[in-house]
């Protein structure tokens, strides 16, 4: 058997190929529908152990926004704080916390005085 290809119009070839695709699709669909298993089981969507609520809200939560900002844009500040506070020495931790507490107390006193004067 030798191949003697007559020259078709490219458009005719395209139409023939798409007709063949349609025939194959119908045949495949019939075979598939007659043979396929009808047993189905519905499960929860798997989101790495997280509940579905994590993708339910349209906007991210405040906590996620905070950690997103810290991790993406303020990584160096975060690392500095970690290295300064979490050294394993309770003295350094107390020193850091008390320094901030001192500033906060000063601020509170200042705000109270300003409030009293303004009133």
């Amino acid at each position: 058997m030798t191949h003697s290809y007559s020259l078709n119009d490219p458009l005719a070839t395209t139409i023939l190929v798409f007709a063949s695709m349609s025939i194959s699709f119908i045949a495949l669909l019939l075979v598939y529908e007659s043979l396929k298993s009808r047993v189905t089981r519905e499960t929860q969507i798997y989101l790495s152990g997280e509940p579905e609520e994590v993708v339910k809200e349209a906007s991210p939560s405040v906590g996620n926004l905070y950690w997103g900002f810290i991790k993406k844009f303020a990584r160096s500040i975060f690392n500095t704080l970690i290295n300064k506070v979490q050294t394993g020495s309770i003295h350094e931790w107390f020193s850091f916390i008390s320094s901030w507490l001192g500033i906060l107390i000063l601020l509170a006193v200042l705000m109270s005085v300003l409030y009293l004067l303004a009133r």
């Binding site: 598939y32 043979l35 396929k36 298993s37 047993v39 189905t40 089981r41 519905e42 499960t43």
Partner: peptide
């Protein structure tokens, strides 16, 4: 195709 269940 015939025996296994479809999980969705």
């Amino acid at each position: 195709l015939r025996a296994k269940e479809l999980v969705k």
